[in-house]
Simulated scan of single mutants.
Amino acid sequence: MVRKAIFQLEQADQLDAVSDRLQGIVQRVAKPKKLRDLLHGTWLGHPLHPVLVQAPVGAFMSAAVLDALPGQRRAATTLIAFGTAAAAPAIAAGWVDWSSLSRDQRRVGLVHASANAVALLLYGGSLAARFSGRHGLGKVLAYAGLSLAGGGAYLGGHLSYEQGAGMNQAAVELMQLPEDWAEVGEVSSLPEGKPTVRTIGDVRVLLYRLGDEVSAMIEHCGHQGGPLGEGDVEGSGADACVVCPWHGSTFRLVDGAVMHGPAAGDQPTLRTRVRDGVLSVATP
C-alpha cells in the first residue's frame, strides 16, 4: 500500500508546475557559488543536509520523552524551542540540494519538505501554547508534529536510498571494473592537456594527460550521472577542472577533487600505470 502510494507520488507530474517554479526561486536565491557550495556540503565532502537535521530531530525526540515524564515541562519546552530554531539551516541546505535533483526526485522531495514544514508549524504552535500556560495542548501539538515529521523522514529515506538523491552515482561503477590492471592504449594517442573518454568493459573512464602522467576518473558525474566527457574544461595544467554539463559540478582533472557542487564528494578516480608507453588503469 505504502509502496504503491510512493510510486504514484514519483509519477505525479501535476506537481511539476509548482516544483519547477520553486526550483527557479531557490536557484535565484542561492545563486552565489560560495553559498551553494556551503549548503551542498562540498567543503565537507558529504551532503550537509543530513548532518544538520540531526539537531532538530534529536531535540524533538528528546522533548517527546520529557513530555511523557512528570516535572519536565521547562526542559521539554527548551528543547522544542532549540529544535525549531535549528531547523532553519537544515531547511536551507535541503532546498538547495532539492533544486538540483531530477523531476521524479523533486516530486517526492516536495512532499517531504511540505510534511516537515507542517510539522514545524505544529511545533511553533506547541511553543505558543506552552508559553501561554496551555501545556496539555502544547504536548498534543508536539506529538502531532513528531508524527508528521516521521512521515516526512520516511519520504526523505526513500528519496536518498531508493531514488539515489545525494548518493555518489559514480561509486557503483568502480565495482564493475576489474581488480587487476586493464590496458587502455598507447599514451601517445591521448591528447595533451585535454580530457578524453575511453571505455573499459561497460564503464566509461575520463582520462587526462599531462606529459607522461595520466589521471583517470569515472566519467559519469557522481551527482546525477551526467557525462563529464561532454563538459567544459576550466583552467589548464594541474589546475584544470571539468564542469558537468548537467548541473555544474566541477572536479579537478588530476585527482577528481570536487571544486564546486552540487556534488558534495570527490569524483571516484582510478590508479594509472604506464609501461613501455602503454597506459593501464586499476581500481583504487
Rank of each mutant, 00 (worst) to 15 (best):
L121S: 11
L122D: 09
Y123L: 00
G124M: 08
G124E: 01
G124N: 00
S126N: 03
L127V: 15
L127C: 04
A128M: 03
A129Y: 11
S132I: 05
R134G: 08
R134C: 01
H135F: 10
G136E: 11
K139Y: 00
K139T: 14
V140R: 06
L141R: 12
L141Q: 12
L141S: 12
Y143M: 03
Y143R: 06
Y143T: 04
A144M: 14
G145C: 04
L146W: 00
L146C: 06
L146K: 01
S147C: 02
S147D: 04
S147T: 12
L148D: 05
A149W: 07
G150A: 15
G151P: 00
G152T: 10
A153P: 02
A153I: 14
L159H: 13
Y161A: 04
E162W: 06
E162M: 05
G164R: 11
A165V: 15
G166E: 03
M167D: 04
N168S: 11
N168T: 08
Q169E: 01
A171F: 01
V172Y: 02
E173A: 07
M175R: 10
M175S: 14
M175V: 05
Q176D: 10
P178A: 01
P178F: 05
W181E: 09
W181F: 14
E183V: 09
V184M: 09
V184A: 08
V184W: 08
V184C: 07
E186G: 11
E186Y: 03
E186R: 14
S188L: 10
